[in-house]
Amino acid sequence: MTDQYMSPTPLLDFEATPIQRLIADRGWLSLSQTDRIGAVYDFVRNEILFGYNSDHALPASRVLADGYGQCNTKGTLLMALLRAVGVPCRFHGFTIDKRLQRGVVPELVYPLAPRNIIHSWVEVFHDGQWLNLEGFILDAPVLAALQGAFPERQSLCAYGAGTDCLQDPNVEWREASTYIQKTGINHDFGTFDDPDTFYATRRQLTGVKGILYRVLVRHWMNHRVKMMRNGHVPKIPGGEANLVPTQTTHEMQGAI
């Protein structure tokens, strides 16, 4: 595997002392590749809580320090840790329909959110093939809260989840692809060697809306996620009609 999938970058700053200390403390380098992937994946999924950082394009060491993240920031940390333990990986960029964030974004500001939100997952090279890793985004308590709130549902596109198998989603590392937001995807940008290349030309949190997001809205969203983690899932106006993906979103899945 070439260096392009193994090298550090400004965002994948796995040579930073906190990341190297974490790897040493956990003993990940002594594991097999399968178990290295699993250990790193489980750490990012459950020990880095689901939440919203100040920007999509943060260095992995900053995400680790924050202790929380969403698809893009948790993905950057996952990539950095994978490369640090010798596992090749790359970035796959998308957008998701904003309906996937319904229930997390407060209703008062939901109309201001961009229709298409930058999204990504990590592709890892394992056992001779590329596997998609996306199931790390929601930590287990948040997912359990959604399963408990909607026990009869399988299809859900809201509250940070986009899945047709809510009660048994493919989120555990079993040497296969994992997903938790896939049905919200509505545009595919393709693969990139690293997140730096992608974010160099695609940024979303800019201007007045970006400032509003950073200083107010994301903290409001994180409070709502904390409520979800504690079992209090906010109601969405409009009921069942706002819990499923759009037809365009479903059509998009066949192209991935």
Rank of each mutant, 00 (worst) to 15 (best):
I211V: 04
G148N: 07
Q154R: 13
S177I: 04
L138P: 15
C165S: 15
G135N: 08
A200M: 02
L131W: 11
K209D: 01
I118G: 06
F189L: 03
L166V: 02
P151K: 10
S177A: 09
Y199E: 04
T191S: 13
G184T: 03
E134P: 06
D193E: 12
L216D: 08
H187N: 07
G190I: 01
L131P: 13
F150Q: 01
V217F: 12
D193V: 03
D188I: 02
D194A: 05
D164N: 13
E123M: 11
K209F: 15
A200D: 00
P141D: 13
K182D: 08
Q147Y: 12
I137G: 02
E134T: 08
Q167F: 07
V215F: 02
D139P: 06
E123L: 03
C157N: 15
F198Y: 14
A161E: 09
H187S: 11
L216C: 14
N132Q: 14
Y213C: 02
Y159E: 11
T178H: 03
L166G: 01
V142F: 10
L156C: 06
K182E: 14
V142T: 15
F189W: 08
C157Q: 12
G184M: 02
Y159S: 12
E123N: 06
F136G: 11
D127G: 05
Q147E: 13
E152K: 12
H119L: 13
H126D: 01
G135W: 09
I137M: 04
F136P: 07
H119D: 11
C165W: 01
G148I: 01
W130S: 08
P169A: 00
T183E: 12
P151F: 01
P141G: 07
E172S: 13
V217C: 06
E152M: 04
N170M: 07
I211K: 06
A149I: 10
R218V: 01
R218E: 00
L216A: 15
V208T: 07
F125N: 04
Y179C: 02
Y159R: 09
L133W: 00
